[in-house]
Amino acid sequence: MSLARLETRNLEHARAGDGFHLRLPDTVFAAGTLTLLTGPTGSGKTTLLHLLAGLLRPTAGEILADGEAVSRWTAAHRDRWRRGVGLLLQHAPLLEDRRADENVLAPLVPLTGPTAPKLAAVAAALAAVDSVDLAARPVRELSGGERQRVALARALAPSPAVLLLDEPTAHQDDARIPALLAAARAARDRGAVVVVASHDPRAMAAAAPDTEIRLGAAPGPAC
């Protein structure tokens, strides 16, 4: 999937019950750019990433991918949309009964083509996050930081057109952060839309974003 621009128009997302309400000014995420989303906890960074990934639907406004209203698509079409999206979820959920390399392979499994190139992509993604040594280990045995790197490798493996990273440095040592953000920049350099959500000052310093969007504090609890 190739994509020139991802944009939001009059985007709003409200959650019943806790009073959370995200409003985003019209924004364009262009291909080949890295956007840094910042803001305090509860400001809506994760929600915006989930909206862009098609996991959530906006309550108002829309999300357009090269002019197509992704947010209006049916669930089946949004499933297909996510094939082109590499998403690092905040808590880095993994398939707990599988090995690290199998978790990285997971988004490639339903795609056409032989298995060997997919395995090569897995190896390359693990190398990109400096985690080749984790490949054969069961993810149950991994630390929080290691799990997060495996999840990041999983987001990178399909070479997605849209890379959405939620707090990619939250569990990492200072020494690892430059390599992880370098992987994000490499995705940007090959033409992907990259959006990094973080309130980690180390990430903000090392990301070298093309654009920064600061979300305001939300009235409700953390999302």
Partner: peptide, 15 residues
């Protein structure tokens, strides 16, 4: 939970 995660990763219902 695993099904939800796979859907998040782009697996369709058919997959």
């Amino acid at each position: 939970r695993d099904l939800g995660l796979l859907k998040t990763l782009g697996w369709s219902t058919s997959d």
